[in-house]
Simulated scan of single mutants.
Amino acid sequence: MSSSTAMHRELQRELETKATDLSKLQKDIAKNHQVRKKYTIQLGENELVLKELDLLNEDANVYKLIGPVLVKQDLAEANANVRKRIDYMSAELKRLDATLQDLEEKQNSKKEAILKLQQRIQSLQAGKAKA
């Protein structure tokens, strides 16, 4: 009977460890969603800026806000900078998507492991009740 109790305690500890791991994964997933949201918003803003820049004539004046000062900038340079930012943000979103997929797969496997452990604990308890 005592070996059954020790086994039950061990399973409980293992369950707590897996639950803690699952909680950490869920926090990482939430953080990923926050960062992804930020990049998505910035990407949309930069795409709007690019559309506006494309509407301008080549001799139009373009200014960039640097700190509290507006600095005149060449249209081609501004266009190139915005495109670089869009490329960077798109690459980051792809990376975040891949990370998210990996985290979700890990989360699902942890949930399955927890479910199996809970079933083992329940069957152990049911075995004790019969004895």
Rank of each mutant, 00 (worst) to 15 (best):
M7Q: 15
M7S: 14
H8D: 13
H8N: 15
H8I: 12
H8L: 15
R9K: 14
R9Y: 14
E10W: 11
L11E: 13
L11R: 09
L11A: 05
L11F: 12
Q12M: 10
R13P: 05
E14F: 07
E14C: 12
E14K: 14
L15S: 14
E16H: 13
E16R: 15
T17M: 09
T17A: 12
T17F: 07
A19N: 11
A19D: 07
A19H: 10
A19C: 11
T20N: 13
T20I: 04
D21A: 08
S23Q: 11
S23V: 12
K24W: 05
K24I: 07
K27R: 06
D28V: 03
D28T: 04
I29V: 01
A30D: 07
K31W: 06
N32M: 06
H33E: 13
H33W: 06
V35Q: 03
R36Y: 03
K37Y: 05
K37W: 04
K37G: 04
Y39W: 05
Y39T: 00
Y39A: 01
T40I: 07
T40Q: 04
I41T: 12
I41F: 09
Q42H: 11
L43H: 01
E45I: 02
E45R: 08
E45L: 05
E45A: 09
E45S: 09
E47L: 03
E47Y: 03
E47N: 03
L48A: 08
L48R: 11
L48Y: 12
L48W: 03
V49D: 07
L50F: 04
L50A: 00
K51D: 00
K51H: 04
K51M: 01
E52V: 03
E52Y: 00
E52M: 09
L53S: 02
L53E: 12
D54T: 12
D54E: 12
D54W: 06
D54C: 04
L55M: 10
L55R: 00
L56P: 02
N57Q: 08
N57D: 09
D59T: 12
A60S: 15
A60I: 08
A60Q: 02
A60K: 00
N61D: 06
V62W: 06
K64L: 10
K64E: 13
K64G: 00
I66P: 05
I66C: 03
G67D: 06
G67V: 08
G67C: 04
P68G: 07
P68E: 09
P68A: 13
V69A: 09
V69P: 10
V69L: 06
L70G: 11
V71W: 01
V71Y: 05
V71N: 14
V71K: 13
K72I: 10
Q73T: 13
Q73R: 02
D74G: 11
L75N: 01
L75V: 02
A76M: 06
A76L: 11
A78K: 06
A78Y: 00
A78Q: 03
A78G: 10
N79H: 01
V82T: 01
R83E: 03
R83H: 00
R83L: 13
K84L: 12
R85S: 15
R85V: 07
